[in-house]
């Protein structure tokens, strides 16, 4: 037992701590950009002019309709072969992963946002318009503040998913938690200890994210918008 413990302490934990930092650098920007883009896409899908609406629908069906691994392969392996006006874009593994995660996450976020926008009663919009607000003012000052509160549980769910699918970055050579875990396991053949420890790291990440999301939910909760308390 103490031998296992020493292996964890000397080899696995220091290496995974490094991977944890890399994973965090993947997850945090992807989550923020994904959410922001998701809000914009969701709002355009509901309130945008018809052509923009179509473009955004197409975006969502492509990114929800293809495997994330294929998307990552595309950004990392295929993009460098595409010439646009004589220039090629070669992304680092990190950049390709963040781009892939943000775009995929935004497609899912937009669906939660869209649902929340549609749940806002027409009366709220009528009242804003009757006061002389423009369409953009109505969306920003009246609809979004209510819709985002309704969408938060769903969007939080998507962020939790993101934490776990960030492990796919290891496939395009990023040394994140999973990438490092796989390397140690290959070198040492001690699969049980390494992968059990790896699972615990993700569990901790998700727990921290859950606590943060719950805190945010409490912070922005208003009378009439409470999530059910138990």
């Amino acid at each position: 037992m103490s031998e296992y413990w020493r292996f964890l302490q000397d080899v696995v934990i220091p290496a995974l701590n490094q991977g944890l930092w890399v994973s965090t650098l993947l997850i945090v920007p992807s989550a923020l950009m994904g959410l922001l883009l998701g809000i914009v896409v969701g709002a355009l899908r509901v309130y945008g002019p018809a052509p923009l609406r179509k473009v955004n629908e197409a975006y969502v069906s492509i990114f929800r309709g293809t495997p994330l691994v294929v998307q990552l392969f595309f950004w990392y392996f295929a993009l460098p072969h595409i010439q646009i006006m004589g220039a090629r874009l070669v992304l680092s593994p990190m950049a390709a992963a963040i781009l892939g995660f943000s775009l995929c996450s935004a497609a899912y976020h937009s669906e939660y946002i869209r649902g929340a926008l549609l749940s806002i009663r027409q009366g709220q919009i009528n009242a804003a318009q009757a006061l002389g607000m423009t369409k953009v003012q109505t969306i920003i000052s009246v609809i979004l503040p209510q819709a985002l509160r309704r969408a938060l549980p769903g969007c939080g769910n998507e962020i939790i998913y993101l934490i776990k699918y960030s492990s796919l970055a290891s496939i395009i050579t990023v040394s994140d938690l999973t990438g490092i875990g796989r390397t140690i396991a290959k070198q040492t053949w001690r699969n049980i200890e390494v992968f059990a420890a790896l699972g615990i790291y993700y569990l901790l990440l998700v727990t921290v994210a859950t606590l943060i999301l719950r805190w945010v939910e409490l912070r922005i909760s208003l009378p009439g918008f409470e999530q059910a308390k138990n």
Binding site: G123, A127, A130, L131, T134, V142, P145, Q146, G224
Partner: peptide, 24 residues
């Protein structure tokens, strides 16, 4: 006319049957 629309509505107040206060 968009400008007409907003300018008219600024000058004409409306009270709704179900209040339509901004809930947030």
């Amino acid at each position: 006319g968009k400008r007409d629309l907003c300018s008219l509505r600024q000058q004409v107040g409306m009270i709704f049957q179900d209040f339509n206060l901004f809930d947030h």
